[in-house]
Design a protein around this nucleic acid. Structure first.
Lengths: 169, 169
DNA sequence: CCAAACTCGTTGCATTTGAAATGATATTGA
DNA sequence: TCAATATCATTTCAAATGCAACGAGTTTGG
C-alpha cells in the first residue's frame, strides 16, 4: 500500500469524474448549440415533461440540483418562454412550474438527439455488459447509502434503483 | 421513441453524473476535512507524487483540469507549503512544480484513506463485474474518441486505457 | 387565537469557474 | 539578425455556484 503506487488514472473516483464530465460535455454541446440550454435547464425541463406542474422543491428533490440552482434555471427558462410559473393553488408559498408549448417543442427536438448520443455510448457494449455496468453503479450507490458521511440520494434516484434491489424487509 | 417515455433517472449521462458527483463529494469530505484540500489540489498533488517536478502545462495535460485551475491550485498549495515552485532550468517560461516534504507527508496521510474509500466501493462487487465495469467505461471513452464533437482525452487517460485495447494497427 | 416553529422560493455574498487576454520567453523563418 | 509566430503561466473579467440568510406564507401547540 505504498503511496508511490497510487495512480490517479486508475483511481475509481477520478475515472468516474473524467468519463462523466466528458459525456456531460458532449451532451451539452447538443442542447447548448440547438437551444442554448445548460445542464440545470435540461434537467428541469425533462423532469417537467414527466411530472407536469411541480414546485421548485420537488424539482430539487428529484434531479440532483441545489435549490438556488433550480430557482435560477427556472427563471432563465421562463424568460425564454420554455416554462411558465403560476401561483400554487392551495399553498400560497408553492409555485407551480410547467412546460409551455414552446418548451415541449424544444424537448421534442432535443430528446431524440440526446437519446441518440446515449445510444452511441451504450451501443458499443453488449446488453449483458451494460446490465452489469448499471448493477455495479447501483452497488456503489448502496455502499454510499450506508455511509453517514455521504450525501443521501434523491428520492427519485433511490426509487428507480431500489426496484432492482432485494426488498428491504 | 416518444419523448414522454424519456426518464432522466435512466438516462446514462445523468446517472453517471449523479454517481460521480456523489463519490467525488464523499472523497472530498475526507481530504477536505483533514487537510483542507479541494479536488484540483488533490489531483495536482497526486500527479506530482508520480511525476516529480513538472510544469503547469504538464499537469493540465494529465489530470483533466483547465490551465487556470491548475495555476491557482498550485498557488494555494504553495501558500500552504505543500508544494514548491522553482524556475525551470533551460526554458525560462516553464515552472518546475514539485512536492515539499510536508506535501509528501500530507499525501502519505490522505492516500490510504482515499484508497480505503475506493475499496469500500469496489469491494461491494465481484472482481469480474468490476472488470466489466471498467471495460464498459473504456468502450464509452472509445466512442467519444471517434466523435469530433467530444473533447479529446488527456494523454494520460488515453495511455492508461489504451493498454487494454487491441493495438491500433 | 396567536406566537413559535417550520417550509417555501428567492436573493446576498463570497468563492469558484473558464474563456480570453496579457506579459514574458522561445522558436521559427526569411 | 531580427521580426513574426508560438508557447508558457498568470491574470482579468463576467458568469456560475452554493451556503446562508431572508421575507412571505403555513402549520402547530398551548
Amino acid at each position: 500500500m505504498t503511496p508511490d503506487d497510487f495512480h490517479l488514472s486508475s483511481f475509481l473516483p477520478y475515472r468516474l469524474a473524467v468519463l462523466s464530465e466528458r459525456v456531460s460535455r458532449r451532451l451539452s454541446v447538443e442542447y447548448g448549440r440547438t437551444h442554448g440550454l445548460a445542464v440545470a435547464e435540461w434537467r428541469v425541463m425533462v423532469h417537467l415533461l414527466r411530472c407536469g406542474a411541480v414546485s421548485v422543491r420537488d424539482i430539487h428533490n428529484c434531479v440532483n440540483l441545489e435549490k438556488p440552482r433550480v430557482s435560477r434555471a427556472v427563471s432563465r427558462l421562463e424568460a425564454e418562454g420554455l416554462v411558465q410559473k403560476t401561483q400554487g393553488e392551495g399553498d400560497g408559498r408553492l409555485v407551480a412550474i410547467s412546460l409551455t408549448d414552446a418548451g415541449r417543442r424544444a424537448l421534442a427536438d432535443i430528446i431524440p438527439a440526446a437519446t441518440q448520443i446515449e445510444g452511441h455510448l451504450t451501443g458499443a457494449v453488449s446488453a449483458e455488459d451494460l446490465a452489469t455496468f448499471f448493477r455495479v453503479m447501483e452497488r456503489m450507490h448502496a455502499v454510499l447509502d450506508d455511509d453517514p458521511e455521504a450525501k443521501p440520494r434523491t428520492v427519485m434516484d433511490l426509487d428507480r434503483d431500489a426496484k432492482m434491489m432485494p426488498s428491504p424487509v
